[in-house]
Design a protein around this nucleic acid. Sequence first.
DNA 1: CTATTTCATTAAGGTATCTTAAGAACGCTA
DNA 2: TAGCGTTCTTAAGATACCTTAATGAAATAG
Lengths: 192, 192
Amino acid sequence: MYDLLIGNIKELVPLTEDESKLIQKSFEPVHLKKKQFLLQSGEYSNHMRFISQGCVKLYNLDELGAEHILQFGISGWWINDLYAYLTQKPATFFIQAITQSTVLQIHRDRLNELFDKIHMMDRFFRIKTQNGYVALQERTINNMSQSAEQRYLEFIERYRDIEQQIPQYMLASYLGVTPEHLSSIRKNIRDY
Amino acid sequence: MYDLLIGNIKELVPLTEDESKLIQKSFEPVHLKKKQFLLQSGEYSNHMRFISQGCVKLYNLDELGAEHILQFGISGWWINDLYAYLTQKPATFFIQAITQSTVLQIHRDRLNELFDKIHMMDRFFRIKTQNGYVALQERTINNMSQSAEQRYLEFIERYRDIEQQIPQYMLASYLGVTPEHLSSIRKNIRDY
DNA sequence: CTATTTCATTAAGGTATCTTAAGAACGCTA
DNA sequence: TAGCGTTCTTAAGATACCTTAATGAAATAG
């Protein structure tokens, strides 16, 4: 269970055997049933979270109560309400399991200890966040310059593994369209 | 000129006098006239860039040649085609001065040297990128859940200093609407 | 195995935003 | 100060996407 985590870190930075063990000891596993919450709006997000197994969603609710999915997370991804984590303010997002999932999480205090003890942990999260930033930038550009149909086609090509774990209306929410509209987009594609 | 840069870093992490000097020596100033390019699509982005004075825009062109502004940068902000910088692939974005500007830039090789010499530089860019990520996430959510009018109102409230340095059609591009539509939004607001 | 909930589809009418085109205001520069 | 490029506005018609509502299919619970 921890191999995926340590492997994920070692992909980007070198770690000694001792460091790996120290990191491993700092994370605790959390098991989630389908639809169970890892974080709810209003709660404090005191952990960084790595998805070991399963599929979760990060979303918020607007004034009208409509759900907007900001991110999906599957095995090997990090997920959090980063703003709430960093500022220690109440979360504005929900993190909920879409399928039964296992998450490895580390408390902020433990992680900050790691940052001080292991220079490479600062670097790992720097690089990881940079990569996340770049991906989000690309999504922003795509949202600005592409039609819903183009965004849909790009998503299913790029994230086929995610598409297969989630219902279609959640994908619609992520893409920023109504389920009805996504359905009609798919119909158009079928009809060439 | 360098005070703003060093101050910007020291806001987030501590630096010794020696470290500050080393950092300062690693950056070089670039002066830009209005409309001059700091980076063009197809070029390599080998520098991290800090805006010391003025106002610049980061944008790309879609297949139809339409311009989409991803980010503005003013005095005290960092700006880059981060994907191109990190992957060392040709840039897909342009960075262009909106007003006469001064930029302090550091070559990737120098910056990587700093990362190895100064642990706090890794931390600084980790935190900086985390903050940028959070801001971009919020923008993404806003784009998904708010009308163009709401996004406009939020922008001018939050970034009054930027709004005053840029023409309205660039703000329209940033907000993801046509200049005509932004104009009509402003008219509606005027008429209450 | 049936009942119930969840999810996907279809269609009609409505709204936000775009496209195109034209003209007006502004600010440089000759 | 005249002229020219840049920016902003207005308006009409087009389009993408939404809302609502109803139906059917699939998954899940009892």
